[in-house]
Design a protein around this nucleic acid. Structure first.
Lengths: 202, 202
DNA sequence: TATATTATTAACCGGTCGGCCAGTTAGTTT
DNA sequence: AAACTAACTGGCCGACCGGTTAATAATATA
């Protein structure tokens, strides 16, 4: 068989997966190494063998997810010419990305609560800057109103989407019976109307 | 002296204050009853005497803050006639409220992450509903565009403000040197432009 | 095949955790 | 002033925490 009795890389990945599940579920403080080990099907010692400490493990979990996030976002910016329609496309893409990756929304919240200037924060700042440049280009072309700071335009767009997945539970009950996916779609449609009407040149 | 040697209500409040500080600082999991007791200047046993368990204490901390929040928001809605200008006023009021009560932003994040259908969630849903009614009134009067679900209008407004205080750290660095208060003000100004242009009748 | 390396485990460490209990002290009631 | 209730304390408990260590089993290397 090609299946080895030992497979370090797979083990490492299994630990990371388990750690992500536990950490994102209960947060760093309430998660325990034993739980993670059990979830991964290995011994606690092995976590230390691969990652050294609980904190290191948490850091790796965060950066792994965050890298996927940043890559996705940068690709999105790359593909987007800076006119309004493609900014709208970006917003929709971002919306569906968060819808498909709810862990990301949780990580963002945890990172906020830890309020430390870590790698994730730095990555996100770089992303923000890259996006703002694109928006500024759109403004220079006259496709986006220029009397608003490009950083704020981007920030608002991101916020409108992020906030939905963070707090939609508070709204969903008002639409009970309705299919959540339908409500998601309705929100996206309405919010696109508001936002893009608001950033039109005038 | 009027100062009693014992003052249960004051003690209770002191414990709640201490608990809020510790809980919001490090989160439920990493906070410890001993730390809270030390911070409050009482014995650990007393925390159990008043609140029964760590979890109960945490719940009380949350609901206390959340009540203040809800009261403030309801008062804001009460005072507001449902025309656009007063909705704008509400947005600004909300902005300054979160600016003055950063603990609130953290609590909101915790409530999201714990994702349990608790009192806070219920309170917030009631708030959401009350706000949506006001927006709907504005729409009926023709002061707010009627082709958008009133819940989404309110939700977006709240989100734009909340998200700022959750993630502004990522932006602030790009304005380094600048006074944070000035940046806050600049954001509020710009975002008001976007949002209210976006919800105008058309 | 001998040897070094690394993946893996079980047992264990000191320390802290949340919670409990027995007792004391301060106010209240009668 | 006696009896009762509630505030408050110190000390203790078993459980679990993150981390270490010493040994073993599998693999890579020579």
């Amino acid at each position: 068989m090609t299946a080895r009795t030992r497979n370090p890389e797979a083990t490492r990945a299994a630990i990371l997966d388990a750690a992500e599940k536990i950490f994102l579920g209960k947060g760093y403080g309430e998660a325990s190494m034993s739980q993670i080990a059990a979830q991964a099907g290995v011994t606690k010692s092995l976590l230390h063998h691969y990652f050294g400490s609980k904190e290191n493990l948490w850091t790796e979990v965060k950066t792994r997810r965050f890298s996927i996030y940043v890559d996705h976002q940068l690709a999105m910016l790359e593909g987007a010419d800076p006119d309004v329609n493609l900014l709208m496309e970006s917003m929709k893409t971002y919306f569906h990305f968060l819808k498909d990756n709810p862990e990301m929304v949780r990580i963002l919240a945890w990172v906020f609560l830890e309020r430390q200037q870590d790698t994730c924060m730095t990555m996100d700042q770089g992303l923000m800057e890259a996006g703002a440049v694109k928006v500024a280009e759109g403004q220079a072309r006259g496709e986006i109103r220029a009397d608003i700071n490009p950083h704020f335009i981007l920030f608002t767009m991101v916020g409108i989407v992020q906030h939905w997945f963070q707090d939609r539970a508070h709204v969903l009950e008002r639409f009970d019976g309705a299919d959540p996916d339908t409500v998601d779609q309705a929100y996206l449609g309405d919010v696109v109307k508001i936002f893009f009407e608001g950033i039109l040149p005038r």
